[in-house]
């Protein structure tokens, strides 16, 4: 059994875990879900994009946690009682496995979907961006957006750097990082004037 979703045929019969973000409902393939844990204190990592919430200790392993609301540029707000972290496992190249967490407002249920019940992502003409959307489906009375979980996480897991165009991207990122680091350093020192 492989958890890899083939790129050419994203829409697949299978079981999906559905969860809510705000008033919206989303789904991801159950095969990628390792476990669901209660929201726990997250250690913020400085100087990271806002959607990277920080790191947590998952029984001895340090894993990164994403804020899906921030990732999709939804309205940010406090997490409720039902908020939890879905831990997903991503399969990188050469059999590497990465665990990452995603904060969601509430986990709903596991549903069985068939190919023909999944429609491709609608085209909104640019906004919102549909690159992370695998398709939409209607089940148990509501429309759920099925997410391309690997794409969402691999974006941040930097596993994509193994791809051919990765090198230049890394170089670009490195360059900007250095630039921002020194700028910030300078402005901080500026601020220290006593």
């Amino acid at each position: 059994m492989t958890t890899k979703i083939s790129t050419d045929n994203k829409l697949k019969t299978g079981r999906y875990l559905t969860f809510s973000l705000g008033n919206e409902s989303y789904g991801i393939p159950v095969l990628n879900v390792r476990e669901i844990i209660r929201l726990c204190p997250i250690t913020p990592v400085p100087r990271m994009p806002t959607h990277i919430k920080g790191v947590i200790n998952l029984r001895g392993t340090v894993i990164a946690v994403l804020d899906l609301r921030a990732k999709f540029q939804l309205a940010l707000g406090d997490y409720g009682d039902r908020a939890c972290i879905i831990v997903v496992q991503l399969n990188g190249p050469e059999g590497t496995k990465t665990l990452m967490g995603a904060i969601v407002d509430a986990v709903e249920e596991v549903v069985q979907l068939r190919d023909d019940s999944i429609e491709p992502a609608p085209d909104f003409g640019g906004s919102p961006d549909t690159q992370y959307i695998m398709g939409v489906t209607t089940c148990t009375g509501s429309v759920k957006t099925l997410l391309d979980i690997e794409k969402i996480f691999l974006d941040d897991a930097s596993i994509t750097r193994a791809l051919p165009d990765g090198i230049s991207r890394e170089a670009a990122r490195l360059g900007t990082r250095n630039a921002t680091a020194s700028n910030v350093a300078e402005s901080n020192l500026l601020a220290t004037g006593k």
Partner: peptide
């Protein structure tokens, strides 16, 4: 020292993370 994983591979500010006595993560 624990590796912080792929996500933070490109940052050089942190050498790693550690699980502290109370179960939280220290950087």
């Amino acid at each position: 020292i624990k590796s912080m994983g792929e996500t933070f591979k490109d940052q050089h500010l942190l050498a790693g993370a550690a699980v502290l006595g109370d179960g939280s993560v220290g950087l």
